[in-house]
Design a protein around this nucleic acid. Structure first.
Length: 467
RNA sequence: GGACAGGUGGCGGAGCGGUUGAACGCGCUGGUCUCGAAAACCAGUAUGCAUUUCGGUGCAUCGUGGGUUCGAAUCCCACCCUGUCCGCCA
């Protein structure tokens, strides 16, 4: 959520920000409603002040007179009643006016709130303008020694690569058919070495971020209240991406909940509605959680394999810290470098992409995607085999106070003022998607797969997966 | 599935129709005392919005929304949430 004060002061910044992000939101209308609302509130406040003042003066009198009314003789009643109704007349009139203003406000506020939740955070000035992921800008890339970016996998390694689909089939690591039988399209069942490797990657990710970088290991609810989805900024925009445990069809307590698409929701919601102690900054959390995504609107895209699926597991990192842009930028770089360490440790070639304004999503001021090289992806080369392509495996967001404002997550500065925190989040590792580059990049000419050193301790020392 | 209880400030906990934005306790901040600390004592200590001659001032907020009333934390209705006991399941 954006700061309405800032919006009033510099609406252009937000209008241009929404435009750059390709988000259609009627900011002029919001400003208009905001002005109306403020006018109404001001009028109402004045009336209330008067009502209160009168109430203090005449209230006790009325009470006393009404008491007398009970014990007094009939002949004196009319006079008493007249005095009471005289005293009651003014506050009653005020009450009616205040009530009318309430009704006017009730007309405005739903739309006012709705648009407010839709206004995106303007992108930072140094984010390149663009309309889609095609306009993202590569920052840098890395590959293990011996890998030549100008050559194909076959030229680099001396044999034609299999796709991950072929590999998991040949090595019996995934059962897609039964996955689909049980759970429908985009479902899978990891088996044997597939499941072991999946768990190894997640365990490695948790170990790395917690032990090497001091993030606090934390579990999160993956079934959450709507407020957590709104607070973290996934709603209203992402509602069609989200599974809903529906109270209409299955009434009863605990039935109106949503399945989270990322551990970020649970982690960031931990401190919602809190004024956290600034001494704890920066607050660094890591979790591993199952993530659920409906992938609505992605029909026909990446239908085969482990790339785009409804359910996966992810190690996620978040940082909450004081409201300072420079600090946020530093954290952002740190969180990205943690991922780079991990990918380098697993010897996976990757590149960093600066996402353009059109690809940022509504809540980010800046976002860096990390893409691993996947030999089995992409268009067909002349030999009829995939030419290889980068595939997004990580996404690092810098949100400033946009998310914490929604979550009502604050701290006190030196002067005791409450301030909304800044937040950031980044994938540590998401599996099984990350298994795709691991399998494809570490495959051998004989069809076996060499397990990266760093994962072996989590697989009982196993060095190689072969049929 | 059945039977209840309850939602008040950073926390605990009063209040159940009239200066109650809210007693009391704890915590926190400042001060006195002390060589220093603890204890004791004194003072202060909610959030949001608006307004301001930056000293304040006004309004709202006791789960949420509506209602009754001249007046609601207090009464009524609906909803949300939390907890307890029994049953069931792991």
């Amino acid at each position: 959520m954006i700061d309405l004060k800032q919006l009033r002061e510099s609406p252009e910044r937000f209008i241009q920000g929404a435009e750059a992000k390709n988000i259609d939101v009627d900011i002029d209308r919001l400003l208009e409603l905001d002005q109306q609302r403020r006018d109404l509130l001001q009028k109402q406040e004045t009336l209330r002040a008067e009502q209160k003042k009168i109430g203090k003066e005449t209230g006790p009198q009325i009470g006393k007179l009404k008491g007398q009314l009970k014990s007094v003789e009939d002949s004196q009643r009319p006079e008493l009643e007249a005095r009471i109704s005289e005293l009651e007349a003014r506050p009653a009139a005020l009450k009616q006016q205040i009530h009318d203003l309430d009704e006017s406000l009730a007309v405005i506020e739903p739309e006012w709130k709705k648009i407010q939740l839709q206004v995106p955070q303007p992108p930072d000035d140094d984010v390149p303008r663009g309309s889609s992921s095609d306009d993202n800008v590569e920052i840098r890339r890395w590959a293990p020694e011996g890998w030549d970016w100008d050559k194909s996998f076959e030229e680099n390694r001396g044999f034609a690569p299999k796709t991950h689909l072929e590999l998991v089939h040949d090595l019996n690591m995934v059962d897609f058919e039964r996955g689909v039988k049980v759970a429908g399209s985009r479902s899978y069942v990891l088996t044997g070495a597939g499941m072991r490797l999946h768990q190894a990657v997640l365990a490695f990710g948790m170990q790395h971020i917690c032990e090497k970088h001091g993030f606090r290991a934390t579990s999160v609810p993956v079934l959450v209240r709507e407020q957590a989805m709104v607070g973290t900024g996934f709603f209203p925009g992402g509602i069609e991406q989200t599974y809903h445990i529906d109270s209409d069809s299955t009434p009863g307590p605990g039935q109106d909940l949503y399945l989270t698409g990322t551990g970020e929701v649970g982690l960031m919601s931990l401190h919602s509605d809190e004024i956290v102690d600034a001494d704890q900054f920066p607050m660094k959390y890591a979790t591993v959680s199952t993530c659920f995504r409906r992938e609505a609107g992605a029909a026909g895209k990446d239908t085969a394999g482990l790339y785009r699926i409804h359910q996966f597991d992810k190690v996620e990192q978040v940082i909450i810290d004081k409201a300072d842009e420079a600090t946020s930028r530093t954290h952002h770089e740190t969180m990205i470098s943690i991922v780079e360490e991990l990918l380098q440790a697993m010897q996976l070639p990757y590149r960093l992409l600066q996402c353009c304004t059109g690809d940022l999503g509504s809540k980010n001021a800046d976002m860096i995607d990390i893409e691993c090289w996947i030999p089995g992806r992409g268009d067909e080369a002349s030999n009829g085999r995939p030419a290889g392509e980068f595939g997004e495996t990580h996404s690092a967001s810098r949100l400033y106070d946009f998310q914490c404002r929604r979550l009502n997550l604050r701290y006190r500065d030196k002067d005791g003022k409450t301030i909304f925190c800044h937040s950031l989040n980044n994938t540590v590792v998401a599996s099984p998607r990350i298994l795709i580059p691991i399998l494809e990049m570490h495959q051998q000419a004989d069809g076996s797969i060499i397990i990266p050193d760093v994962l072996r301790p989590f697989m009982g020392g196993c060095e190689r997966i072969s049929s």
